[in-house]
Nucleic acid binder design. Sequence first.
DNA 1: TTCTTGACTTGGACTGAGTCCAATGTAGGA
DNA 2: TCCTACATTGGACTCAGTCCAAGTCAAGAA
Lengths: 138, 138
Amino acid sequence: MSDLLERLRGRGWRLTAQRRVVAEVLDGDHVHLTADEVHARAAARLPEISRATVYNTLGELVSLGEVIEVSTDRRAMRYDPNAHRPHQHLVCGKCGLVRDVRPVGDPLTDLPEGERFGFTLSGAEITYHGLCPSCASD
Amino acid sequence: MSDLLERLRGRGWRLTAQRRVVAEVLDGDHVHLTADEVHARAAARLPEISRATVYNTLGELVSLGEVIEVSTDRRAMRYDPNAHRPHQHLVCGKCGLVRDVRPVGDPLTDLPEGERFGFTLSGAEITYHGLCPSCASD
DNA sequence: TTCTTGACTTGGACTGAGTCCAATGTAGGA
DNA sequence: TCCTACATTGGACTCAGTCCAAGTCAAGAA
């Protein structure tokens, strides 16, 4: 994640303690935290960090293309740092576990011309639903 | 939509004026209204209908499988009465227009065994993003 | 037809997620 | 070291949705 901080500094980001802990909290694979979860983990390292700053920082990371927003349920938005490798999401309908997955092929090619209603397509987002191994065995 | 009302009555639904107008408002193709839009249109016919009743009725229609919830943006949930024909959604990123579309093939078959993490899959939801013809020409 | 009752509706308070803003603090260049 | 434009703060606010106690009414019973 420190290469991320380098990239951001190269883009004129002012490097504050708050931004650093938010970036650190988001490090890892299959990470899909809500803003409040990010805030709780960041506050464990930097107790005075505010919710507003977490929202600001997450929003900046999203608009810089370093983090992706995913809505896996009808509750809070989740933040996915795996932004540089195209992927989709697999969600457990019981416990909410989210995995990053890579289906074969390009989903856009599955939408025939006659079903495009004249739209200019820019992308497709797939959410696979199911039960994770431990929820399926209950 | 009156066949819907018949089906529901057959399932023991008490047929009230409020439920009738909500069902009528949801009639049609490519209908994807928010709860507040449903409430506004229902209130045009039945001014005293409450938001709570609209939410209750939409929730019942969803759990009876007569209406599908779709979240096309990060704002309000939308309600799609096209529940008996499997389909996906195509969303204009500028004006928010939503069309029902039918891609070829079954999206589940595009997720290889090695990408399923032991999950038991139950379905997949695809949102195609793009610009509608009138927004693309601006 | 009227009666009865349990299901339905209501409005208002409440929650959770997210935004906004004026005041305060500070990173990093001069 | 100083300056200042940018970042942070906390609290008020919005918006979507839920909850609940009190009142209403659809439809079966008589």
